[in-house]
Nucleic acid binder design. Sequence first.
DNA 1: CTTATTTGACCTTA
DNA 2: TAAGGTCAAATAAG
Length: 327
Amino acid sequence: MDPVQLALSLILRGCRSAKELEARLGDLANQPEALSKSCDEIINMFASAKEMLNNAHPHQGSSQQQTDTSLHELLNYGVIRQAMDMIQSGRTSISIGAEIQAMEVSDSGKGSSSSSQRSHRSRKHDQEKCRMRVPAPQMGNTDFPPEDNYTWRKYGQKEILGSRYPRAYYRCTHQKMYNCPAKKQVQRLDNDFYTFEVTYIGQHTCHMSSTAPSIAPPPSTPLIQDPMVMVSQPTLPPPTSSSSVAPLGTWLSMEFSLGPGSSSGGIGGGDAGASSAAGGGGASMGSRYGRDVVEFPAVADMADAMFNSGSSSSNSMDFIFPHMEDK
DNA sequence: CTTATTTGACCTTA
DNA sequence: TAAGGTCAAATAAG
């Protein structure tokens, strides 16, 4: 079995254990040892999973990588972002499934775009495209495109026929410096203002340069092949946003629905997103000068942090998203 | 000053 | 020819 799959099962088990622990919290309240033991078990599961994920970085093939990339990003950032949104908004039910509502990989594209305009531009027929849907933050500034691990520079925006919202075009900030061909297009869904459809085109090469910014390593492994993890949520949450309860949301709910403070007065709302992009526009405000590195912890880290953070509400987020505050 | 965003014009493709 | 994708000048922002 694929190490990643193993890691996934571990994560799942960790989630379940956490949930069980949640249910038994009352009973264990006066048994610190048992509590501690349970915590350790959970932590170990996530730690092991993390280990596996870290070790599972085979050099990916070409076509598979796009999928892997998306999945990885999805898991790392989509879920984390959702979780963070939940924390900040106090919301307890989320729809992770929505994030993978429609995801596809294709290697020929119709919007194959134009080739060479003023200079030689390689044909993009063979460019890989990967489309996915990611939820916008439900509160605060919902204008900015979803954050992923890379720094993007906006180079165009266009009204699209038949679409209510314009499509924004981004390319990798390091396109010039590292000749990185990665691009992405971001557009809101017609029928769901709170969901972006993000199309990734091309792969990042900037991380391969030794001098290049040390973004997270190229996601390589299909993190979400286990149907239990993602697909179990039948997706398609109701129109607007609040929606079915994802497993993660369930087991995290305890943490997230904590007291009043957890709505995070400070970082709240717009700020979180501001690091990613300012309203209406860019995708990379946080990295205006392009060199700062934002490294998101893996999910395991997040869970780890959460479980270690002693239900201390927003503080844990400082650990998880340290960069969020430096705004 | 440097870097990012905006936006109309231009180019390619279907 | 229309639509979509990209360029690049103007502008904004740190």
